[in-house]
Nucleic acid binder design. Structure first.
Lengths: 215, 215
DNA sequence: GTCTATACGAGGATAGAC
DNA sequence: GTCTATCCTCGTATAGAC
């Protein structure tokens, strides 16, 4: 489960390596339990170092939480910035954006859960207007461009942006519930299932915003 | 916040009233914090009775959690069963189903969070195949009917069902994060915003599954 | 059925040696 | 920078009176 590579500690007495190791384990734990449910002992157990190191580097549990959220946001933004939005058609740009959200969630399954926990459990205290705007504005702008160019139907860019993200990432967060829809043993996080999800989500979203449908 | 009416206790020494009062407060707390993050003291504080009553009626915290999940499921199923799926067109049936998911989430904001917490935090241990199937099968069947009748495009009913629910309920779970997209002070749970969300979600979903688009 | 009081373990946080 | 040992609060759960 979780990220492909969890640093179990690289070298001895390497501050950066230790911090990253703690951040990795913490991200896993916060994604599983949220700020309230997370246990610092559980985090330490998945690290090459001891619990005391958490407090040495991050002062307290909440400081660690903030560091995890910050890193999660900047990772998401990095992924987002790699998407080339200057494709000729808004349709292509939108396709790439949705793919990026889903690939990002597939590679690091922690991110969707982290963001949702922050909203539900922490009332979204951490992320301010700037953070959220930078996450959503590429999507919102593509939608606006599509409407202006006549490719997309008249829709509310903000609501639709949120709903698009919902259809992209809800799959990952509710996976342990909805897995029962598929034959028992099916792994919803497997490469094959993720690709299938991506294809279906993209198709639905594109068809959902287009003014005139594909032949 | 939360449900419109939280029973603060009806009469004195009324077992049913007390149990319901505890269940209401517990649902609120579990929806906010999950099983791990929930505090029995917080639950008791929002009840007319003391913490000891929780253990008297539900043995322990997990027993209470199970009772809350059971009630949440049966409520959702009740809402679902009220939807008339014998409308002539699959399109109309789908519209009603999505509306039902959103209205249900609007009336009891706890339900989406409860279900997500169970998946992420508790690995979906509680809900088995039958529970999940009963939640999703109306939607899946309508999609299958629509494909068979030629109204809907060729799509994977399971994946699309999950993605439809995602675009319906993600809005509510991520509300405290994405609220910053709207002018400060906007209440995403207000009647007006919920109606707008419902309209946008339905439009996107319907357009997303139709084979031939509306004129 | 409901309350008050309390036992006890879990878990966040710190001190101080190395 | 890292560890071990420990403190002490918080939170689950129970005992027993009313």
């Amino acid at each position: 489960m979780g990220s492909s590579t969890v640093n179990k500690k690289a070298a001895c007495r390497d501050a950066e390596a230790t911090k990253n190791s703690i951040l990795d384990a913490a991200e896993e734990e916060f994604a599983r339990a949220g700020l309230l449910g997370a246990r610092t002992e559980a985090i330490a157990a998945n690290t090459g170092v001891t619990k005391a190191m958490i407090y040495y580097y991050f002062s307290d549990k909440e400081g660690l939480y903030r560091a995890v959220l910050e890193r999660a946001l900047s990772r998401r933004l990095q992924i987002l910035q790699k998407v080339d939005l200057h494709a000729a058609e808004p349709k292509e740009a939108l396709r790439k954006l949705v793919a990026s959200f889903i690939d990002g969630a597939g590679q690091n399954q922690n991110l969707p859960a982290i963001f949702l926990f922050e909203s539900v459990q922490n009332q979204g205290k951490f992320y301010g207007q700037i953070a959220i705007a930078s996450l959503y504005s590429p999507l919102v702008q593509v939608l606006e461009r599509g409407i202006a160019s006549g490719h997309f139907r008249k829709l509310d860019p903000l609501h639709v942006a949120v709903n698009i993200v919902g259809s992209a990432v809800y799959y990952f967060c509710s996976a342990q519930n909805v897995k029962h829809l598929w034959p028992s043993g099916t792994d919803l996080f497997s490469e094959g299932m993720r690709e299938k999800h991506k294809a279906e989500a993209i198709e639905m979203v594109i068809a959902g915003v287009l003014k005139y449908p594909p032949a």
